[in-house]
C-alpha cells in the first residue's frame, strides 16, 4: 500500500502457516500479505480450504496445533504480535482485538449468565468496578439490539435465539472497545432475514466505535454489503485484493472473475452460470507456478512454472501473470 506516516492498524507480512503431517508438511497459507487501516472493513473471501479462517486464527494467536506460523510477521498498530508469549497475547486478544465466530453457541459458556460473561470480560481488561461493568454490559446489550437488556442480562445463552446469541457475541467482542474485530463467518449459521440484521448491526457498530473489521466469509453478498476492501484467497494464497466495488463489479483475476460469475443473481436471469471447471486442489497437490493454473481459462506457459506475486493494477493488487508489466498482456482480459 501507499506509504503513509502512520502505520496501518493491522499489517500482515508474508504470512505462512504450515501443518506438519506424516506425509510431509502442508502449506495451508502461503506468503499472504495485507493490511487493514483504522476503521476499515476488509472482507476476506474464499472457498472452504482457501486458508481464510486460518489466517484469521493466526492473527489472534488461536491457531490450533499442529498448525503453526512458519514465517512472516503480524503487526498491530506497529507492534509485532505474532511472537508474543501466550499471556501477553491473551491481553491483546481481549483488549485490542475482538472476535466473533460462526457458531455463537460455542463462543458462549452455557453455564454462566450472559451478564456475568460480559462483566467478567470487561473487568478482566479494564479496572471498572462491578457495578460500572454491569451498567456497561446492559448498555452494550441495548446497543446490539437486544430488547429489555436489564432482564435479558441475567439469562443464560440457551434462552436466546440464534440471532440474539450472535448479538451477544458481538457485544462480547465490543466490550472493551477493541481497535480490530475479527469476524469469522459471523452470519453463516443464521437465516437470511437474521443475517441481514446482523450485517446491519456490525456495520453500524463499527462505524460508531471506529473499529476496523476483518470479515472472513464465503458469501460475496455479505462482503458487498459490508466491506470497504476485499481480499480473495485461493489455495492458501491471495489472488486479488482491492476496493470492494472494483473486485465485485470488475474482477481482474480469472479466479475472482469466475467466482463472481458462478453466483446466481436475482437481477438478471441466466440460463447457465459461469462455471470454473474442476475443484480447488488439495493442499497436498498444489501445482507449480500459479495455484489456479489447472482451472484457469487464460492459462499460458509462464503460469505453469512461475508463481505470480501481487502486482498493483488500477487500485487493486492482483497476483496473475496476465497483469505482469513486463509483458504486453495487461488489460487483455475479457
Amino acid at each position: 500500500m501507499a506509504a503513509s506516516t502512520q502505520p496501518p492498524l493491522l499489517e500482515v507480512k508474508n504470512l505462512r502457516i504450515e501443518f506438519p503431517t506424516r506425509r510431509g508438511t502442508l502449506v495451508a497459507v502461503d506468503d499472504v500479505s495485507f493490511d487493514i487501516a483504522e476503521g476499515e472493513v476488509l472482507g476476506v473471501v474464499g472457498e472452504s480450504g482457501a486458508g481464510k479462517s486460518l489466517t484469521g486464527a493466526s492473527i489472534i494467536g488461536l491457531l490450533e496445533p499442529p498448525g503453526r506460523i512458519a514465517g512472516g510477521e503480524v503487526y498491530l498498530a506497529g507492534r509485532r504480535i505474532d511472537n508474543l508469549p501466550y499471556e501477553k497475547m491473551r491481553q491483546v486478544r481481549g483488549r485490542e482485538i475482538g472476535m466473533v465466530f460462526q457458531d455463537p453457541l460455542t463462543s458462549l459458556n452455557p453455564l454462566y449468565s450472559v451478564g456475568s460473561q460480559l462483566v467478567e470480560t470487561i473487568r478482566t481488561h479494564t479496572d471498572m468496578s462491578e457495578s460500572a461493568a454491569q451498567q456497561r454490559a446492559i448498555d452494550l446489550l441495548g446497543e446490539v439490539g437486544i430488547p429489555s437488556p436489564k432482564i435479558r442480562i441475567n439469562q443464560y445463552p440457551h434462552q436466546f435465539s440464534g440471532g440474539m446469541r450472535q448479538r451477544v457475541v458481538i457485544a462480547l467482542a465490543l466490550c472493551v472497545n477493541p481497535k480490530l474485530i475479527i469476524a469469522d463467518e459471523p452470519t453463516t449459521a443464521l437465516d437470511v432475514s437474521i443475517q441481514a440484521q446482523i450485517i446491519d448491526l456490525l456495520k453500524r457498530l463499527c462505524r460508531d466505535h471506529g473499529a476496523a473489521v476483518m470479515l472472513i466469509t464465503h458469501d460475496m453478498g455479505v462482503i458487498a454489503e459490508t466491506a470497504n476492501r476485499v481480499a480473495v484467497m485461493y489455495a492458501g494464497r491471495l489472488a486479488e485484493i482491492g476496493p470492494v466495488g472494483q473486485v465485485i463489479k470488475n474482477a481482474k483475476h480469472p479466479y475472482t472473475h469466475g467466482l463472481m460469475g458462478s453466483i446466481p443473481k436475482l437481477a438478471h436471469a441466466t440460463e447457465r452460470l459461469v462455471q470454473i471447471e474442476g475443484t480447488m486442489p488439495r493442499l497436498t497437490e498444489i501445482p507449480n507456478g500459479c495455484a489456479f493454473n489447472p482451472r484457469c481459462p487464460k492459462v499460458f506457459a509462464r503460469c505453469m512454472v512461475e508463481r505470480p506475486d501481487l502486482t498493483p493494477v488500477d487500485s487493486s493488487q492482483i497476483s496473475c501473470w496476465l497483469y505482469d508489466k513486463t509483458m504486453e498482456r495487461t488489460g487483455s482480459h475479457g
Binding site: S161, V192, Q195, A196, I199, D219, A224, E225, K265, A267
Partner: peptide, 22 residues
C-alpha cells in the same frame, strides 16, 4: 425475504431492516 438478500450489484438500494425472528 427478498429484501433480506445481500445486494451483490451494490446498487445502494436502501434496505428495510427486517424485524423479529422466526
Amino acid at each position: 425475504l427478498l429484501d433480506a438478500i445481500p445486494d451483490l450489484d451494490m446498487s445502494g438500494r436502501p434496505r428495510q431492516a427486517v424485524a423479529g425472528e422466526v
